[in-house]
Amino acid sequence: MQGSIGIFDSGYGGLTVLKEITALLPQYNYLYLGDNARAPYGNRSFETVYHYTLQCVEWFFAQGCPLVILACNTASAKALRTIQQNDLQRLNPHNRVLGVIRPTTEVVGRYTKTNKVGVLATNGTVQSQSYIIEIEKFFPEVKVYQQACPMWVPLIENNEHNTPGADYFVKEYTNALLQQSADIDVVLLGCTHYPLLQEKIKQALPPQVQVLSQGAIVAAGLKDYLHRHPQMEQRLSRGGERLFYTTDSTEDFNTHARLFYGADVQSAHVELKS
């Protein structure tokens, strides 16, 4: 759909970001693509994540999207910079690809009083060190502690996030984070799936610890970006349409999507060659 904003994720988590973006900026048209057939990206190599993400960005550009948001922390960590620096000029120098890590790291330091911030994320995001590198650029005084949470995405995607098993793994990973520093007063959910566990995470942390999820922050960052780049804003089509695509089963996608998006969706299938 010409002029739509593209929202990409390896699976369903990006729908939590799309939900917040469309609440704040409902006037634009949106295309969502979940690469569910090749999800999860969290444990894949940098090269594989880059290859898959680039394929999906090329698909969005072919649909006429001038702006693509990688609503996936792993793709933002492992592929965004390479695509911006190496591929955009070749694909379309007037189009833009943005991620979810930068807008989050630009503001996270405003929330901490102790200058100790915890990040809960996938293995891939933790290994990339992206949050440590980016937060240091904006808030060099802030010390960042990371904890990988490999069980959370499978629990959420299998609709097991309200079970005692989920409670166990929430406690395990939050305790492991707090063991690194008892002074952490802000915890950032560095994966777009994790808002579905947000209440459990809050309960597992001391009451003075603030938990930040990315959706609202990314939405506010996008609004600011469009304000600062009117030439891009003018290329966007309006009408409030939302189209959903998946590289896997549309039936599975539609069933799961309601959990993340909070509304029924009807998706279409896209075949991407590996």
Rank of each mutant, 00 (worst) to 15 (best):
E172N: 09
K113S: 15
D87M: 14
V97F: 14
K78N: 12
P140R: 04
A216N: 11
F244W: 01
L205R: 04
C149V: 02
N92G: 10
I133N: 08
E58D: 15
E47T: 04
A166F: 07
A71P: 14
E106F: 05
W152Q: 09
R228T: 07
L70F: 15
V270K: 05
G215N: 07
Q84N: 12
F61T: 03
Y50F: 15
R228D: 07
N159C: 08
S10C: 10
R258G: 01
P230Q: 02
G239I: 03
Q55I: 03
L259R: 02
I135W: 02
L178N: 06
S130I: 02
Q210T: 15
L91F: 07
S237Y: 01
R44P: 00
F139E: 01
A23W: 04
H51C: 10
L178S: 06
H94S: 14
A148H: 03
L205A: 04
L98Y: 10
N95M: 07
A182D: 02
S128L: 01
S128K: 00
P26E: 06
D264C: 00
R242Q: 14
Q208A: 12
I135Y: 01
Q27F: 04
T125V: 08
V68N: 15
A77D: 08
Y145N: 10
A257I: 02
T246C: 06
Q84C: 11
L70E: 11
E20D: 15
S181L: 05
N158L: 04
Y12I: 05
A39G: 05
G13H: 09
N73I: 13
Y194Q: 12
E233P: 00
S249C: 00
M1Y: 02
N95D: 13
E233C: 10
L25P: 03
L196H: 12
A263R: 09
G42Q: 01
R38S: 11
Q63M: 12
Q210Y: 03
T122Q: 10
E106V: 07
K137A: 03
G215S: 02
V153M: 11
L70N: 13
P40D: 08
Y12S: 09
C149T: 09
V100W: 09
T104E: 05
H256N: 12
D252K: 04
L243W: 00
L120E: 10
E199R: 08
D9P: 13
D224L: 14
P195R: 07
A220S: 13
T74R: 11
Q27Y: 03
T163Y: 10
L226S: 05
V97Y: 13
L67I: 11
R235P: 00
R242K: 14
L80M: 11
V49C: 07
N159D: 15
V153C: 07
N158D: 10
Q127G: 01
G14N: 07
N254G: 06
T250D: 02
D9F: 12
A204K: 03
H269A: 03
A77I: 05
L205D: 00
Y50L: 14
S213Q: 11
T53Y: 13
L188D: 01
T163Q: 12
Y173H: 13
A257Y: 00
T192L: 07
D167R: 06
S237W: 03
C56K: 05
G240V: 08
S249H: 00
N123W: 05
Y111F: 15
I201E: 05
L188R: 00
L205M: 03
V117M: 06
F260H: 04
F169C: 13
G34E: 04
M151N: 09
G262F: 05
I5G: 07
I156D: 09
L31A: 06
K202Q: 12
T22M: 12
Y145E: 08
H269V: 00
